[in-house]
Amino acid sequence: MWGPPDMKRFLKPGWLLLTFYSLIFFSFIYLPLAVIIIYSFNSNPMDMTSWQSFTLDWYRGLFGLAEVGPSLGTSAIYVESTDQLLKALRNSLIVATTTTIISTTIGTATAIAMTRFRFRLRNAYQGLMMMPMMMPDIVLGIGLLIFFVTLGFKLSLLTIIIGHCTFLSSYVFIVVQARMAALDPALEEASADLGANEWVTFKKVLMPQLMPGIVGGAMLAFIISMDDLVITYFIAGTDSTTLPMFIFSMLRRGVKPEINAIATLIILASLIIAVIGLYLRTRQVE
């Protein structure tokens, strides 16, 4: 049945339009990222948009390996200090990791309970779980701030973690619940039928079956937690600056080339996480 490909098909107006649309679509998404990556290697310290020459100085500067002093008449210090950057990064990683673990646990447990058990006010509960996703960040941020202050919490990494967990649990819940709803209830019954108690069934059947959802939800939680600025801004203490807050405060004093370097590193990190995530997903369930 294999004939020569029908080239005419690809020349039809519909196909051309579709190709054109796809090109625009992908440029729209990826061009800004490409620009940032390219500029992060541009040695022009004044005007990022005109290319001077290739350099790794901005990256060296980030890690304190090169002195990127004031030049060409500016008195600004480009990166406040490498220490501060690394501390912000460390804070963000602590927050994101802890939040991911806690909210993945809560979200997954809730999703399982909501699908498997019928109880009173179940629908109301489900609605409450969705709420934080609909809520504007700024409302959530202010609400959390008032909450913490009223209860006498000292704003710190802990308050950021608690704050992130409140809304990221619902993200994980929604992702895992979708997977859970698609699961054949007979799987768990089959496991019980073959002699497995609830814990063994959970370990050997439910968890592996839910794993793509759990991994997806955890990745989502990690990325959102790493990335969140608005809510974090309200509930962070003086000593708990996160990476987005650090970048934002840098930006307020002008766009500097180091930002491109940081952004490029973040893109790289996200790519690595995404690749690992995809790998885990395809490996877990065929």
């Binding site: 019954e189 039928d193 079956q209």
Partner: peptide, 20 residues
């Protein structure tokens, strides 16, 4: 006696094989 202790086994209509 809970299902997992009963000396009977089931073949489900949907087969319910563990895909993983």
């Amino acid at each position: 006696v809970p299902a997992f202790r009963r000396p009977v086994n089931t073949v489900f209509q949907s087969y319910a094989l563990f895909s993983h």
